[in-house]
Amino acid sequence: MGKKRKHSETEAAAPVVKNDSAPERPKRTLLGWKDKNEDAEKSKPASVSGFRNKEKVLVTCSRRISYRYRHLMLNMVSLLPHCKKDSKVEAKSSKGATLNELIELKGSSSCLFFECRKHKDLYLWMVKSPSGPSVKFLVNAVHTMEELKLTGNHLKGSRPLLTFSSNFDKDAHWKLLKEMLTQVFGIPKEHRKSKPYHDHVFVFSIVDDHIWFRNYQISVPHNESDKIARGGLDKMTLIEVGPRFCLNPIKIFGGSFGGPTLYENPFYVSPNQIRALEKRNKAGKFAKKIKAKTRRQMHELANPLEPDEFADMWKDE
């Protein structure tokens, strides 16, 4: 609690502080004293505006989740140092209330809930907690970090750069999703578990109305701490770290784990329907065969063969 009060105090006091703190001693850097006024001015408004990102994400999953999806969840936990992992939650109809309570208990402001159904389908709930919207995704094409094809590696807790494809600004619901993704997946600045370097990048890209997620390690040839060698930016390469997944938004609700529906994916077909359709297609096979057979019989009856005029040609002898 003490921390919080402190923060609010600084917020209030900040504008006053700005004016009389002009002669400040130069900042020490790795290479010596830095006395650029420009930098000092630049760094100040950040503290002045008093904004501090205090995002905390509750990460949990439903009971009877399959191992692959559980690993995906654990990967997310290792990627987000500002998250709190909790034990599994029974995925009943009343799970919303339970989860809301849990979020409140943990003091977090958002939640990622991995819901596995039928050991096959993974749904991801991304929720802003007290009043914010919640989104339900269907998760496809899951690859976890454990796969040996993904050879990259990066610091645990370093803050990622978040890259969004430009089509996130196309529509209202994409805009909302972008904001939510930046808040949930962006690691708060100066979080105590975060590290001050940026060595990986998240890619969020909308292709075919799905959000694709990728995580790459950035490898730059460099010799000093914060100076890239000449042409280093051109030589920069990315190595995939994982995990990979693809989110298909199903619905956006107004409240947290509920509330009025704000958006519904008009193209969405649930995996259950797809499977049922497949099954029905397969089941039709026998009926079709029978139908064809009867049709053939009817046809043969309707068009009897002409009596063979040579049928009893040799019978007389």
């Binding site: 950040a46 904004f51 990102n53 803050r159 990622p160 750069l161 978040l162 890259t163 969004f164 494809s165 430009s166 089509n167 996130f168 600004d169 930046t182 962006g186 708060p188 600045k189 940026h198 890209s205």
Partner: peptide, 9 residues
């Protein structure tokens, strides 16, 4: 705070 970058595809 955000570290977001928009890239035209």
């Amino acid at each position: 705070h955000k570290l977001t970058v928009e890239i035209d595809q």
